[in-house]
Simulated scan of single mutants.
Amino acid sequence: MQPSLFDTAPTTAAAPEPPVRVPRLLQVRRIWAEAAAAESPRGQQVLARFPDAEVVPVASHWQIPELHGNAGNVERWVRVKTEDLVLGVKKSLQTRPNGRSADFIAPSASNGCAMACAYCYVPRRKGYANPVTVFTNIEAITAHLGRHIRKQGPKTTPNQCDPESWVYDLGENSDCSVDAAISDNVADLVAAFRQWPTAKASFATKHVNRDLLRLDPQGRTRVRFSLMPETDARLLDLRTSPVAERIAAVDDFVAAGYEVHLNFSPVVLRPGWQDDWRELLRHLADGLGERARAQAAAEVIMLTHNAGLHEVNLGWHPKAEERLWRPDLQEVKRSQNGAENVRYRVALKRRAIAELTALVEQETPWLRIRYAF
């Protein structure tokens, strides 16, 4: 009897041809590596992709004093993201329920990001540095996902995540488009979901990586391009692809076999925000073809901030905090994971969501909003 696709990790994807293009935002000079990670096939691939980098042995990818908890790194925030990379083995493989953007949050194949969005929550855990950590045990991650998908069985009740497939978010703590330039982890996951008929991968991104167009997802991977008005993106979405480039990529990704949704996130309230969102929606209406419109959906996520991240940001990007940190508009809110954050006051948030939803109905009536919070 042939083994089930759910019982074993799918065959890893072949190295793309032509070679993957490493973006300029990754000028890696140091690779902090656990021994097992560096010796693994995936670790060897990463080391070969950055042959001039110094390899620094570490006992744990979570315990690197030069990076984590080093307050001096605030002044080097972007340089650390550019020059440092971490290789580790993911010890705990857990898939968690979600119910908003996806049915489940998959075990991360990486952690951290080379981009520098001022509102990103991932650095709150690491403290003062947030370079990319690549987890090299990708076979274990895909095998875990296969077992979890098999346990769910077919999806019999449609929900706002997807009417037919169980949706697994791959990039809760990273940006998979950037990760795909560092290793084949993302290529392997896209290949795996291509073979799992009851499930669909999903990730949000602010980086246009056209190498992803060669992966042949066959409709089993959903890419969510994150968008915000350009005036906000210039201040808050540092080191990301321009918003216009993200919009221009949508039709190409749909043609390549991806499902493409939009992620209006975060929505930042300030004078004139409604006019700028109207302009963005008109750009979308002009930029997306009929095929992209027919399958499009969006999620709306209002800004969430954090006092600890506010203090870190004051050390490297205080101008961003003038827009993000608004005690006159915000209140403390405990998140699902127990973190104490600040969000817009309930009545203000409700009114803003209603205003943005009305703008979407006026300017892009073909765009379904999956959820807003």
Results as ranks from 00 to 15, higher is better:
R282M: 12
A192L: 10
R30I: 03
L227D: 04
L25M: 05
K91Y: 02
W273F: 15
R42A: 15
Q27G: 06
V22C: 03
F264A: 08
T240H: 08
M1N: 06
E340L: 14
R278N: 07
G146R: 01
A38M: 13
I138W: 11
I105V: 12
G287Q: 05
N159K: 00
S335V: 03
L314F: 08
R278D: 13
A187F: 14
T240W: 11
D232M: 13
G272Y: 12
I31Y: 01
I353E: 13
A354I: 07
F135I: 03
A114I: 01
V74N: 04
M1E: 06
G272N: 09
F6W: 15
A249V: 09
Y121T: 09
A181P: 02
D286Q: 13
L235S: 10
Y371Q: 04
A347R: 14
I369D: 03
E83T: 07
V132K: 09
C117M: 08
K319C: 08
T136G: 06
V223Q: 03
V167D: 01
Q45H: 04
L212M: 15
G272M: 11
T198R: 03
A249F: 14
D328C: 00
L281S: 10
Y371F: 15
G257F: 07
D286S: 12
T357P: 01
P197M: 00
D162G: 00
W366F: 14
H148R: 14
V332G: 00
K81F: 10
L236D: 03
E66H: 06
P318S: 06
A14D: 05
E279N: 09
A249M: 11
V55Y: 00
L314I: 06
A116D: 13
Y119N: 06
A285C: 07
D103A: 04
V22M: 01
T95I: 15
C117Q: 12
L359V: 05
L303S: 04
A352E: 08
H148L: 05
D162H: 02
P41G: 02
R29K: 15
E17W: 04
A347H: 14
V267L: 04
R326N: 00
M115G: 11
E321A: 03
L87M: 12
A180I: 03
Q44V: 05
G146M: 02
Q152T: 04
L227S: 06
N306F: 06
K91G: 15
V56Q: 02
P57G: 08
F253R: 02
P65Q: 04
Y128V: 06
T240P: 02
G112S: 13
G272F: 10
